[in-house]
Design a protein around this nucleic acid. Structure first.
Length: 272
DNA sequence: CCGACAACCTGACGGC
DNA sequence: TGCCGTCAGGTTGTCG
């Protein structure tokens, strides 16, 4: 369930099969996911050539030579499969290329979305326009965090999950980044000191980079039949490890609390 | 601005 | 085996 690294890995896997290829068949097997599918999806995509793929936050971008960009969001349970062996009830969008490769977007919970937007308008698209800066690429440093968090009394974990603040972090990597930076997730964002914010600015891209690298190492499998994109084995320090010993060597145990209705995992000894 | 909550969906899992 | 409650990596909206 995809945060930024999973989407990035998915896009890289799709790129192998899609880039430069012409789409010969596009089948929407239902009318909507979270939002209705564009009604003219097939007409605008069939016959188009894919010129490039990209990612913005948790959105995957597939650009065509017809001036359109397909935006996909994987929600909680979405993933793409390459050359699937069978098609089930949760395969909602099928694409076939001129090389005969087949792609399927499977999403059981249907929290994902598909949009088709003129490429020139992608940056102004409502879901994209409101996003904060990309955490990879150097836009985020300690000073930027300090200015962004100034005067905010919300818990830092909740701000990290807000896509308007930092684009692409989700529940796992917000927890992991705070652990690496040794910051208590409950701490008021505006009252965090400079040294901690400097650590956080390092930890956010580092944790994402590590996850992308872990996914990238399995990329070669993605072009195999029924390769599932965006899922790879992950080693977490705190996420999902309630009650287990903290990996920081402090002797404490990982705790689970609820913030904003979501589980937060952290070590109350290491994280202050 | 903030925190809490609900809604959108299906599936997996544990307890009984 | 089934039934029930809980939980899940996201987003969007309302309410006080």
């Amino acid at each position: 369930m995809p945060e930024l690294p999973e989407v990035e890995t998915t896009v890289r896997g799709l790129e192998i099969v899609l880039k430069g290829r012409r789409l010969v068949q596009v089948e929407a097997r239902r009318a909507d996911l979270r939002r209705p599918f564009p009604p003219d999806l097939g007409q605008r995509l069939v016959g188009a050539r894919v010129t490039g793929l990209g990612r913005r936050a948790k959105y995957g971008l597939i650009e065509t030579d017809r001036g359109d960009t397909l935006l996909f969001h994987l929600g909680m349970s979405g993933h793409w499969r390459i050359d699937p062996a069978e098609i089930g009830k949760h395969d909602h969008l099928l694409i076939e290329t001129d090389e005969g490769r087949r792609l399927s977007l499977r999403d059981p919970r249907r929290f994902g979305s598909i949009d088709l937007v003129p490429t020139a308008e992608v940056a102004d698209w409502p879901a994209i326009r409101t996003l904060g800066p990309e955490p990879l690429g150097g836009a985020i440093d300690g000073g930027w965090l300090r200015r962004t968090f100034a005067g905010r009394s919300a818990a830092v974990k909740l701000l990290l999950l807000d896509q308007r603040v930092v684009a692409g972090l989700g529940n796992i990597y917000a927890c992991e980044a705070l652990f690496r930076a040794r910051i208590d997730p409950r701490k008021e964002a505006g009252r965090i000191g400079r040294a901690r914010l400097d650590r956080l600015a390092v930890a956010i891209p580092a944790v994402l980079d590590d996850a992308i690298r872990a996914g990238g190492s399995s990329l070669r499998d993605f072009a195999a039949p029924d390769g599932e994109l965006g899922y790879f084995s992950k080693q977490f320090d705190v996420y999902g490890r309630e009650g287990q010993p903290c990996g920081g060597g402090c002797g404490g145990k990982v705790r689970r609390i609820v913030q904003g209705g979501r589980s937060t995992f952290f070590c109350s000894t290491c994280q202050r």
